[in-house]
């Protein structure tokens, strides 16, 4: 008799737990979803009013070469920013990808114990440095170096890409390390059993099998580079033009937004145009997310 009541109480307890857990997690999800919907709505409503209220043509914004929102007449050509954002983040990914792949291979395949224990935390430490520090280092070290070595001003896409490549290195390396570590050991052992050397195993078995996961890391890094504002703004020069070279002042979507957002009055055409730039950024990030999802589907072994 006593036992059954005990059971009943504990069953009731579990029932309550079940509901508490359920309600709590539902609440959390609700907060998340509201946040995301509110964000998207906010940016979209401001960003789209450029086209509806200020009568700016969408195509003019996306393909126009001249950005002069305070001019007479005001011109809103955002192509220089779009070009700047793509070129800096692509170039950064191009620099960082080989580095992060090699770092991951070194940590997992060559010195597994030392690598995972000491090297990985050190690389992940890079992610904890505030972006203003990267920007300042870029401005104090990289820009003067480029100015002395290459013809041009030092600031520009090259400096921006180099700063960004260091910033996205931890993201890429972490994803690559996890991918390499999760590779079933049977694959490697099979390769060794067939007489392949370590290098052959890495080059012919490990890297091709994990390639989709590695690409996920690259795209995540690309998205991070795309959205970074402050560090890039400090080293890229911010002239609203498509530059004639890697070492000439250029501009990205984020740097254009951060430079002018505080100085413009909300509701003005200039301010709305900046929100349109933010909308472009957001759409691009969504596209990056979809690419990651697609790559993840392919990477399932």
């Amino acid at each position: 008799m006593a036992q059954t009541t005990d059971k009943k109480i504990s069953a009731n307890n579990h029932f309550a737990e079940e509901w508490v857990g359920r309600i709590y997690s539902t609440l959390c999800v609700l907060v998340l979803v509201t946040t995301i919907v509110a964000m998207v709505y906010f940016v979209a409503s401001r960003g789209l009013s450029t086209f509806f209220k200020n009568d700016v043509n969408v195509l003019d914004l996306l393909t126009g070469l001249k950005w002069s929102p305070e001019g007479q007449p005001p011109l809103f050509g955002a192509l220089p920013f779009i070009f700047g954002s793509f070129s800096t983040s692509m170039l950064a990914a191009l620099i960082a990808a080989p580095l992060s792949f090699c770092a991951a291979v070194f940590m997992i395949e060559i010195t597994p114990r030392f690598g995972r224990k000491y090297l990985q935390p050190v690389i992940e430490l890079l992610a904890g440095i505030p972006s203003v520090v990267y920007g300042f280092i870029g401005l104090s070290v990289i820009v003067p170096f480029f100015r002395d070595v290459f013809p041009g001003q030092g600031v520009g896409i090259a400096a921006g890409a180099l700063v960004l490549s260091i910033m996205i290195l931890p993201t890429m390396t972490t994803v690559a390390t996890d991918a390499l570590a999760s590779l079933p050991s049977g694959l490697k052992e099979g390769s060794y059993a067939l007489g392949a050397t370590r290098w052959q195993t890495i080059y012919r078995v490990v890297l091709p099998t994990t390639l989709p996961s590695l690409m996920t890391g690259v795209v995540l890094g690309l998205a991070r580079a795309f959205g970074e504002a402050l560090a890039v703004q400090m080293v890229i020069g911010n002239a609203p033009f498509v530059p004639r070279g890697l070492f000439e002042s250029a501009s990205t979507l984020t740097s254009a937004i951060t430079l002018s957002m505080g100085n413009t009055v909300s509701g003005s055409a200039h301010n709305n145009a900046l929100w349109s730039l933010a909308l472009i950024l957001m759409v691009m990030t969504f596209i990056f997310v979809f690419i990651v999802r697609w790559l993840e589907k392919r990477s399932k072994l």
Partner: peptide
């Protein structure tokens, strides 16, 4: 009023402007 020029550098913060 002047237009932005190709190759000009733009910064918002006075400290950064002075440094550059």
């Amino acid at each position: 009023k002047t237009d932005d020029l190709q190759g000009s550098i733009q910064e918002d913060s006075s400290g950064t402007v002075r440094k550059i």
